[in-house]
């Protein structure tokens, strides 16, 4: 269970959001929506303990995140970063194995179970045959899937995903969302992800958090939050709501 209270998000020279209070419970999948520069990535970093000092507290099962060491935190909170400036020379399997760092002994290196976890994670994103490939030769979408696999190998209780669908084709967008949804529903993981596409949240997320301009934040169940009026205000863009086979979608008019 990940909760934050009185959390303030700030970028150099401006406050993005003030006094954030919410709790992500096991099994819930939260969508974080907002316009460019509204503080979505800052929120992910703050929740993951990567941002420097910020006002307010983030707590994991009631214990402040800052009271955990980096290693212990990484065993329980995993982050898929939006950007990664890796200069990685190794194979795809090596890359995914690094996700096991919080669980493995630094002295012994990777053991059998680590490699099993890494290979299972690669299989889950459809990259099983790419294990031996050099990571830097992957395409953008394949790299994104390898990064998701690294997070799966890390196997945290809380998954914070910053634009998990970037570079992915439609089929893999759905696959990643279903994978993440299954982790929440079947294994009780807490998921919070930044999404850019108004197409997906209503279908895959139980909750939504909207970062409006001017520091106004709304959150609640997906059904409450994902309405045409709210999203139009959020994106300053006229939308139409499409209902088909019981699912709702939003698209620009």
């Amino acid at each position: 269970m990940l909760s934050c209270s009185a959390l303030t998000l700030a970028a150099p020279g401006r406050v993005l959001a003030r006094g954030l209070d919410f709790t992500v419970r096991p099994g819930e999948v939260w969508a974080v929506l907002g316009a460019n520069g509204s503080g979505k990535t800052t929120l992910i970093h703050a929740l993951g303990g990567l941002a420097p000092e910020h006002a307010g507290t983030v707590a994991l099962d009631g214990a402040p995140l800052s009271s955990l060491g980096a290693h212990a935190r990484a065993a329980r909170v995993g982050i898929l970063l939006q950007q990664e400036d890796a200069v990685f020379w190794g194979s795809v399997l090596d890359y995914v194995l690094l996700g096991r760092f919080p669980h493995a002994s630094a002295w012994l290196g990777w053991q059998g179970p680590d490699e099993e976890a890494a290979r299972a994670a690669l299989a889950a994103v459809g990259l099983a045959e790419y294990a031996a490939r050099v990571y830097s030769t992957l395409s953008g979408g394949e790299r994104q899937r390898a990064r998701v696999a690294q997070l799966l190998a890390q196997d945290p209780q809380v998954l914070l995903l910053d634009e998990p669908l970037q570079h992915l084709d439609l089929r893999h967008q759905v696959a990643v969302l279903e994978l993440v949804g299954a982790l929440a529903s079947a294994r009780g993981r807490c998921v919070l992800m930044v999404l850019h596409d108004a197409l997906w949240p209503a279908r895959f997320c139980s909750h939504a958090l909207l970062l409006h301009a001017g520091g106004v934040v709304e959150h609640g169940t997906a059904r409450e939050m994902l309405t045409r009026e709210r999203l139009e205000r959020l994106y300053s863009c006229p939308l139409q709501e499409i209902e088909s086979k019981g699912a709702r979608f939003f698209a620009p008019v």
């Binding site: 990567l50 980096a70 982050i79 970063l81 200069v87 020379w89 690094l98 996700g99 760092f101 493995a104």
Partner: peptide
Amino acid sequence: HAVKLDLLTLGDLKARSLGA
């Protein structure tokens, strides 16, 4: 400490998120 060096090649932020 070689595994930490591997981790560092992923970038500062990623290495921190993985607990280094």
